[in-house]
Design a protein around this nucleic acid. Structure first.
Lengths: 202, 202
DNA sequence: CGCGACATTGAACAGCGTTCATACTCGATC
DNA sequence: GATCGAGTATGAACGCTGTTCAATGTCGCG
């Protein structure tokens, strides 16, 4: 009889997700969530290990949605266009799902303990697509190097989006974000091919 | 008689900074700080507006140190080397002052209220150097565009450093960070000059 | 029906940042 | 030196948080 248990878990995740979308991670209270979900305060601790674990589940769903949007954006495109599309889709997703996306990076597990496997797999679902497109763009790269380049590419885009959205350091019009990313991606891709032809031709 | 008041403020900042360096932002407790500083709990609220404001002062000092290290790194270098040096200095600073650097981005003011001017000025102290080196590298850019490009450049480096240090999405050797940044910066600079010669030559 | 294993409950707990009535400085004034 | 008063220091108390756990309820199975 895990049906009822799963039903409660689902209600809690949904309630937490709604609160998070509206009030963000800082405005997430165990008492609010359990009230919305229609269970007692303690119910959260029999359904999940604690509030942290519940947040992790919300974040996993956010990652899944992000992964789906990225997949849709790059579908059928050649490698170069795909890499551009991934970056654009990422920026748009972040803007549209601001609070949920913030939580993806603001929520750090207490104690040094790292995320469980089922969560890391969701992260992989996003990163794997970058790796795939990058592999198609630069077939000479492989394995470790590819993983590293993909992460660097993704991280850079992430940084640009993050600092732009939270308006740190400089406050500038946010409709400048997408063109700026496009230009930036262009530089990177150009640079990559230039470097690889430089390596392979004497 | 503001000498005593300032002395207490200084002791509180120092105490908070020490705690933050050791335990990070999450491990920062008002009771610990005031005990370390040798004053009562309420003293924090007569010396500062609250814990948030105290953290802001610690962060301002971190930014100042970062600014100094960046200045030292790019001193006497030509524009291209300077932009490389800034990125490298940033990565090294982040790694060496991990918890303090984390707090720079993890600490968000409660309520939508944005940071006071004296704090934004510290941020400017860092960003202005990027702007300056970028201006020297691309003299044709000016004003708004320059600010925007500088932020994009900085944000990208920040993203790479941030995701690498916190080991999100992919766990990879962290001695791969600096070479990866160097390569990345190279691509951007190449791309920039290629784009500008493309624009100015028919 | 009766039992045992599990889920649910919400008062209680320990901790947090913040407040504020109270007590105390200590330089200015006569 | 005595007296005053404006600014400062104090720490118990407040309201909030996530978490726990004894008591209560639920329900499938022999």
């Amino acid at each position: 009889m895990t049906a009822k248990r799963d039903a409660l878990r689902e209600k809690l995740i949904k309630a937490a997700e709604k609160r998070m979308r509206e009030d963000g991670l800082p405005g997430l209270r165990a008492r609010d969530i359990t009230k919305d979900a229609g269970c007692a305060l303690g119910g959260l601790y029999t359904a999940f290990g604690g509030l942290d674990e519940l947040i992790l589940h919300v974040n996993a769903r956010t990652l899944e949605r992000l992964s789906i949007e990225i997949a849709a954006a790059r579908e059928g495109l050649d490698p170069s266009d795909a890499l551009h599309a991934i970056a654009k889709a990422y920026a748009r997703f972040a803007k549209k799902n601001r609070t949920l996306w913030d939580a993806l990076f603001d929520h750090t597990l207490t104690e040094g303990a790292d995320a469980p496997d089922w969560f890391r797999m969701r992260q992989q679902g996003v990163m794997a697509q970058v790796v795939e497109s990058l592999a198609a763009f630069q077939p000479d790269l492989s394995g470790q190097t590819l993983q590293l380049r993909a992460r660097t590419y993704f991280s850079a885009i992430h940084g640009i989006v993050a600092i732009s959205l939270q308006g740190r350091f400089v406050g500038l019009a946010d409709d400048a974000l997408e063109p700026e990313i496009a230009r930036f991606v262009g530089y990177i891709l150009e640079g990559s091919v230039a470097a690889s032809t430089r390596d392979t031709t004497p």
